[in-house]
Design a protein around this nucleic acid. Structure first.
Lengths: 215, 215
DNA sequence: CGCATGGCGTACCGTACGGTACGGTTCAGC
DNA sequence: GCTGAACCGTACCGTACGGTACGCCATGCG
C-alpha cells in the first residue's frame, strides 16, 4: 500500500515518535548510518519491534521523513487586507522561512536522503519531500500572488512563472551547494546573510512583478 | 592522496576511458547499481584490474565523476566587443547551456551520486561536481558581467550577487525537483520549454541589472 | 495467582558486495 | 620460440547489514 502523503498528529504513538526521533537524529549525524540495529539501540527498542511497526527499512525511512516533513509549517497570510506593505512583509516572511528551512541540517539531511532514494528508482521519499518543500511553498504562495494581482499590486500572466521566479531569486545556488557539501558555505556563514538576502530577493521580485515593472 | 580537481585528456588511457564509460552508463541506468562486479562485467575487464587502476570503489567513482564532469565545456565570450546585443546573446547562451546541462540524465545522475556521497561525510565528489557545475559557471560568467559593467551595459555593486541572481532566475526549482524525482517534470516536458525559459530569465536579469534598472 | 500480550535484548541466518588470489591467455620485445 | 608483463575470468574470503527466531521480563486482566 502506498503511504498517504499527509499524516496527522495521531498517526504515530508517542513511543513510535521517540523511535522516529532517534532515526532522524542518526540520519542527521551521519547520513547513511541508519541501520536497523543502530536505530534499535538508540531508541532502546528491539529490531523485531521496528519491523512490526514499520514493515521494513524503507517503511521506517519513509515514516521518519514523512513525520519530520509534516512539521514544517508555512505562514498564513490574510488575503483580505492586502496592501503594498502587507504584501512585501508576506513575501519577506515566505522568503525567510524558505531560506532558513533550506539551510537547516535537518532539511539538508532529508533532501539528501530523498535524493539518494530517488537514485534507486524509488521516488516515494522524493515525493514526500517535494510535497512538503517546493510544492508546499507553491501551494501557499500562489493564492497570495493571485490576490495581489487582483489588488493591482502585482502584474504577471502566469502565477506559476511568478512563483518560480520568486523561488529562484530566494534560493539561488544555495541549496545545491549545501547538498553537495560546499565547504565555503558554512551554516553560520549563510545564516548571517539571511536577512540581507531575503530583502534583496523580495526587492528584486517586486521590481520584476510590481505594478511599476515593465511587462 | 587527494585527486586533482582538474584532469586532462591524457589522464586516462583509452581502455580506462572505456571502463569509465561503462561505469557511467551503469550509474545512469540505475543509480546505486555501481558494483565493482557489474562494472567489470560491463567493461569486460577483471575486478583485479579495476582495483589496480583505481585503488578502490571510491577511486573508481571519483575518476568517473571527474572524467565526465571535465567534459562539460562553457562558451567563451569575446569580452572586447561587448554590445547590448552581444551581451544578451552571451547570457542566453550561458542560460541555455546551464539549463540543458542540468536537466540531462547524466548531470542528474552525477549530482545525485555526489550528494549521496556528501551524505557520508565525504565531500570529494561533491567538490568535483561543484567545481565543474555552479562554480564553473560562476568563474566564466563573472568576467563577462564585470566587463559589461565596465562598458556601462550592466549595473551592480557585487558581481557575486549578480551571478547568483542569474543562476536563480535560470535554474529556479527545476534542479531540485528533478533530483527528487518529480514525476510532473519529465525530461521532454522541461526540454520543450528551455528556449522560452532562457528568454524569460535573460529578460528578467537584464531588467534587474540593465542600465535602465532602478538600483 | 495464573496467564496472555507487548516489547526488550540477543543470537542467528542469508545475502550482497568490497576486496584478494590465482590460473589461463594474449602480446611485446628479444 | 621464449619470457615476462598485463590482463581476463572466476573462485574465494570477510564483513556488514536486512530480516527472523527465541528467551525473558513487565504489565494488565480475569
Amino acid at each position: 500500500m502506498p503511504l498517504p502523503i499527509k499524516i496527522s498528529e495521531e498517526t504515530f504513538t508517542p513511543r513510535q515518535q521517540a523511535v522516529l526521533t532517534a532515526a532522524l537524529d542518526l540520519l542527521v549525524e551521519n547520513g547513511d548510518g541508519l541501520t536497523m540495529t543502530a536505530v534499535a539501540r538508540r531508541a532502546s527498542c528491539s529490531k523485531e519491534t521496528l519491523y512490526k511497526w514499520f514493515g521494513d527499512r524503507d517503511g521506517l525511512l519513509t515514516a521518519t521523513v514523512q513525520w519530520q516533513a509534516a512539521k514544517v509549517r508555512m505562514p498564513n497570510v490574510d488575503r483580505s487586507h492586502l496592501t503594498t506593505k502587507v504584501l512585501r512583509e508576506s513575501l519577506e516572511q515566505f522568503a525567510r522561512d524558505l531560506l532558513t528551512t533550506i539551510i537547516g541540517e535537518v532539511s539538508i539531511t532529508l533532501n539528501r536522503t530523498a535524493i539518494t532514494h530517488a537514485a534507486q528508482e524509488k521516488d516515494s521519499l522524493g515525493n514526500i519531500v517535494l510535497e512538503n518543500g517546493p510544492l508546499a511553498i507553491r501551494r501557499r504562495l500562489k493564492p497570495i500572488l493571485e490576490a495581489a494581482r487582483d489588488a493591482r499590486l502585482l502584474r504577471f500572466t502566469s502565477s506559476e512563472e511568478a512563483y518560480r521566479s520568486f523561488y529562484g531569486l530566494v534560493v539561488r545556488d544555495v541549496q545545491i551547494r549545501l547538498l553537495l557539501g560546499d565547504n565555503a558555505l558554512t551554516q553560520s556563514n549563510v545564516e548571517a546573510n539571511v536577512d540581507a538576502d531575503v530583502k534583496v530577493a523580495t526587492d528584486q521580485f517586486l521590481a520584476l512583478y510590481g505594478p511599476k515593472a515593465n511587462p
